[in-house]
């Protein structure tokens, strides 16, 4: 896909690696960031920008439509929907990014080790990853959350475990192609330790595919996280995320469809933005180019 490879190469005072220019000039990444950044910013600011206390009930204004005093309307208890969507976004984004970070933290070292060690170690580690992946994602998440109490940390952990094998797989196949490079051989000949070779020599050269896979996973992690909340196994009432909002809204769908629509739209836009960014990154950091820039 040769779209948007016309990088702006004019000097900007300090030298950015050319890859940064490519990333910034990619149309999909640009669009994705244009959607995601405002959502993330508002979610981070949370209470500061929310017009009302998200838990305050305004009984007289239950099921209010959008416009008027409450910009997006109110829910069945008369709580301001805009404020709740904002605060819910914080939990949903935290789930997505937290779980992906955990998956990277677990998956990358496993993938590096498997791809570098090869042979039996590789076979063993990848079989274990295959077996974890053979459990349908949502069922694995359910299994973990049935045993552990549902709180935001355990949800992050459950989704992290679900996605770590996918990260490990991608890291491994990138490592396989890099580990025969001369600089790795040289490091080995110098007598560097294995952790040094893995993290200082190989890792910097396999970041492309890892970043792509990670960015794709964020969207899926948000989807799984909100799905678990929807089933009542998510972060739970103190931190109502979009999934929990949508599941509550279903009971009041005929009084006010807006209760359902706003968190759905927010969720859809967020996942779409991360998908756009993931696809754009895939275009720019084509996995096939791994190892070419050392």
């Amino acid at each position: 896909m040769a779209t948007d490879t016309s990088t702006s190469t004019e000097s900007t005072g300090f030298d950015l690696p050319p890859i940064v220019g490519k990333v910034l000039s990619n149309r999909r990444i640009g669009l994705g960031l244009a959607i995601l950044l405002p959502i993330a910013l508002v979610a981070i600011l949370g209470e500061t920008v929310a017009p009302y206390d998200p838990t305050a009930t305004h009984v007289a204004d239950r099921y209010a439509g959008p416009g008027g005093q409450f910009l997006l309307g109110t829910d069945h208890l008369g709580r301001d929907l805009l404020s709740r969507v904002i605060l819910g976004g914080r939990t949903s984004l935290l789930l997505g990014f937290g779980a992906t970070a955990l998956a990277l933290l677990v998956g990358v070292p496993i993938g590096l080790t498997a791809g570098y060690a090869k042979g039996r170690v590789d076979e063993l580690l990848m079989r274990i990853m295959d077996i974890i992946m053979s459990v349908p994602t949502l069922l694995l998440g359910l299994l973990i959350l049935v045993v552990l109490p549902s709180n935001i940390l355990n949800v992050v952990m459950a989704i992290g475990v679900v996605y770590a094998p996918r990260i490990a797989r991608v890291t491994r196949s990138a490592t396989l192609s890099v580990s025969e490079e001369e600089y790795v051989m040289a490091a080995k000949a110098r007598g560097e330790s294995s952790p040094y070779i893995l993290f200082r020599e190989i890792l910097p050269n396999v970041t492309g595919p890892i970043v792509v896979e990670g960015s794709v996973r964020v969207g899926y992690a948000i989807m799984i996280g909100t799905s678990l909340s929807f089933l009542g196994l998510g972060a739970g009432p103190p931190n109502p995320d979009w999934g929990f909002m949508i599941s509550t809204a279903r009971d009041h769908i005929y009084q006010t469809p807006w209760f359902l629509i706003w968190p759905s739209v927010a969720l859809l836009l967020t996942v779409m933005a991360t998908n756009l960014i993931g696809d754009g990154l895939r275009d720019v950091l084509d996995p096939r180019e791994v190892g070419d820039h050392s």
Binding site: I246, A249, L260, S264, L267, L268, M272
Partner: peptide, 11 residues
């Protein structure tokens, strides 16, 4: 690709 199944189902 971006719509979770519980959202599409409910809608």
């Amino acid at each position: 690709l971006s719509i979770p199944s519980f959202v599409s189902a409910t809608l």
